[in-house]
Amino acid sequence: MSWKIWALKKSPWVFHVNTGACNNCDIELLELLTPRFDVERFGIKLVGTPRHADALVVTGGVTRQAAPRLQEIYRQTPKPCVVFAIGSCACSKGIFKKGYHMIGPVDKVIKEVDPEAIVMYIPGCPPKPEAMILGVVKALAAL
């Protein structure tokens, strides 16, 4: 294990990107910061810029407008970084599969920039906060 990955696993700071989600995953994500789940006690923190982030949390199947922005945000994130695709839409475009404005899913868009990118999937519509915590824990253990 490289020391960079070791450092990443310690307390991942995340940047949240909404690429065309319906808000559900987003409010469940914010829920994680509030007293009931409070993931800050594990050192997981939402940050305001991708340049400070160890992980990107992407919600929503990627729309045409959002795709170039997502790629740009990915380029700005220091490597190595982990991309969490949260929710069915981010994993597979979900119910919006037939939409003409959807380019996604997230892994396809990210891998156009970096074929080596680490993408983790947390499915569910929306995944429960417990499921998100479990997904992050499993993902970090697998690194």
Binding site: G20, T63, I95, F96, K98, Y100
Partner: peptide, 14 residues
């Protein structure tokens, strides 16, 4: 706007 546009009205017709 339109970063979140998913074409729901179109999908619903299918």
């Amino acid at each position: 706007i339109s970063y979140n546009h998913r074409g729901i009205e179109g999908i619903s017709e299918t």
